[in-house]
Amino acid sequence: MSRKLFVSPSPHVHSGDSVSSNMYGVIIALIPAFVASIYFFGLGALTVTFTAVAACLLFEFLVQKYLIKGEFTLNDGSALLTGLLLSFNLPSNLPLWIVIIGAFVSIVIAKMSFGGLGNNLFNPALVGRVFLLISFPAQMTTWPVGGTADRFTTVDVATGATHLMPLKGMGGDLLTYADLFFGKMGGSLGEVSAFALLIGFAFMLWRKIITWHIPVSIFASVAIFALLLKADPIAHLFSGGLMLGAIFMATDYVSSPMSKSGMILYGVLIGFLTLLIRKYGAYPEGVSFAILLMNSVTPIINMYMKPKRFGEVVKNG
């Protein structure tokens, strides 16, 4: 034996799971929605996505090189994912400088200023989106209607409102369920196709990247509260950013609760807040606000919603 033996405490084997494999798993799960966005919105979707991703990577690189001077974490895929998710929350005709501002807020303010991945309180992409929504409300709420515009030109196309406006009685026509499901409507580029997002959900469940608890409890609570508030549950489920939010944003590891019971509570409250905002708030869409609000409650949920300890409740039989 030429070399020295390694000695470490048990366990001596590892599952091989890593931060980057989880992040890239989520990115793969986003591919169907990305394809759908290009199909519906054309070149605009591509440029917005590309700009957001590039800006996020650049900002993370700059912060780590000049401010934090820590270990580079660019290759773990989390900045890439933040960029993708941010762009999915933006309209495809958004001016690119606004996209870059969003990326700056997401990475520099919401993620790196807290100490990087793992320490952020809020979902970075959502912070970016909400910042833009408040700062640039006009640009953020006019969308090209999916599938109607000439997809591969960047000239001004017909813009319309999401399906949430008619749902709220703000004018406009109600769409068919099929259009809602496949995404033939106005909206941010990644959120329109519930079908594509659900494929991603199935993929993440299969790869065990996330568990079903958060998305399913959001779906259930949205449906139940919609019924209670005498709204159309199916329309609420498939319109706006709900699918994207429930599957990809609320399940963000860092800002969601740790225990299963906590996850369900978190999901139910997100659904409830979303419906409240959609029904009674000033904004037609409430998913982002609901998730951010619940992000801030996550530490409290973690403190009180403990997993069931072994032997705590003795069940016989």
Partner: peptide, 12 residues
């Protein structure tokens, strides 16, 4: 070793 990303896999 990297930062904890709070994925909750250890809890499950």
């Amino acid at each position: 070793m990297k930062n904890c990303i709070r994925c909750s896999k250890c809890v499950s």
